[in-house]
């Protein structure tokens, strides 16, 4: 468990995008389909300052925004918004 956590937090710095969702089903499905398609995606507690919605948001590589939107459309993933939100 500890090893996995280190691995996840290690790569997160380069992921400057955050996707927010209305409901957690879509956040978890988004993570699952992006990983399946070979994209980096990390579920994080949703930052309150960008969304009051469900508990989780998804950190991802912002430069892949267009691809990500296409994948979401293909897999019926509904998201609230996509933010450029580098880790402070």
């Amino acid at each position: 468990m500890k090893r996995r956590k280190r691995k996840e937090t290690g790569g997160i710095g380069s992921l400057e995008g955050v996707i927010t969702f209305f409901g957690s089903h879509h956040a978890l499905r988004a993570e699952s389909v992006l990983k399946k398609k070979g994209f980096k995606a990390v579920l994080i507690p949703g930052p309150r300052e960008i969304s009051p919605n469900c508990g989780v948001a998804l950190r991802f590589d912002y430069t892949a925004k267009e691809d990500v939107i296409n994948i979401f459309n293909e897999y019926f993933v509904h998201y609230e918004d996509i933010h450029h939100y580098p880790e402070k």
């Binding site: 089903h25 499905r29 699952s32 994080i44 508990g55």
Partner: peptide, 22 residues
């Protein structure tokens, strides 16, 4: 409890539900 928080147990529970739905 799925969907109620962003901690690892809430997320793991959410994945169980998602997996069954899929």
């Amino acid at each position: 409890n799925p969907g109620r928080s962003g901690h690892i147990k809430a997320i793991e529970a959410g994945k169980v539900v998602l997996n069954t739905r899929e």
